[in-house]
Amino acid sequence: MLMLLTSGAPGWGAPPVTASPAPGAVLFQNLCIHCHGSKGEGNATLKAPSIAGLPDWYVVAQLQNFQFDRRGVHAADTEGQMMRAISKALTPQQIPEVASHVTQLPRVTPPPANPAVDLARGKELYEERCMECHRYNGEGELVFRSPPLVGFPDWYLTAQLRKFQRGLRGAEIGDEYGKKMILSSSYVDDEPMLQSLVAYLLTLQSTTGAKEERGGFGED
């Protein structure tokens, strides 16, 4: 019996062996949860969007955009400036690690659309100007580097369209995909049309998404 206890077998009351968290989970814990929440659900008060379930290639591209001063440079883009500062704390190796963790988080379904707006007008605009890149279901398209538009709340979608319209987002040198969005946002002629488009986007929401079609890491 003495030999059994001293030959490598665990002693009585020994704590169970637990696996260490993945590097991406640790980075998320240290840098992201304070604004985006422990589940990536976002925080409207801080104007931090839900990021849970975003495809890894998109998270990588956006962190690189912030890190290389293609996003968050404009003085009026307060939230972007904060993200730019945080992104610079990450090494090239850590960016895909944290992206891998984000994409594994279950997508958050935002509240439904405002029933008072004209959904038909929003649907028409989406099909004419947005669907070619962001797909019929709003899930985005890796080939065009077009991100999903689902999983985001109405206030965030509205704010980003306004930033593109005002040149606060997408106008920096090197942000070619952002420049496409500046052009696309110019077709949103007035506030009622903007609200109609956002309301229609909220009708496309799903909790699962289409991860099997999103592909792997992409270039910015």
Rank of each mutant, 00 (worst) to 15 (best):
T6I: 05
P110Y: 03
T18G: 10
S50T: 03
L142Y: 05
Y58E: 00
T78N: 07
P15N: 08
I95F: 14
M82Q: 08
D189C: 12
E191N: 05
G40Y: 02
K163P: 00
E141T: 13
P16V: 10
A9V: 11
G37E: 04
K179Q: 12
D69Q: 02
Y156K: 05
A44N: 15
C133H: 13
L31K: 15
Q29N: 13
L202V: 05
P111S: 09
M1I: 14
Q205W: 03
Q64L: 10
A159P: 06
M3D: 05
P110T: 06
L46R: 07
T203E: 03
L142H: 10
Q205K: 07
C133N: 11
V108H: 00
W155G: 04
M193Q: 06
Q160A: 05
K39A: 07
C130V: 15
S87E: 07
E127L: 07
P112A: 12
Q29P: 09
I86V: 14
A199D: 01
V198S: 02
Q81G: 07
R214K: 09
A75H: 09
A52N: 02
K39R: 15
S185Y: 02
D77M: 09
V26W: 13
D190N: 15
H36F: 02
S87V: 11
G11K: 12
V17N: 13
E212R: 14
K163T: 04
E219N: 11
Q195T: 05
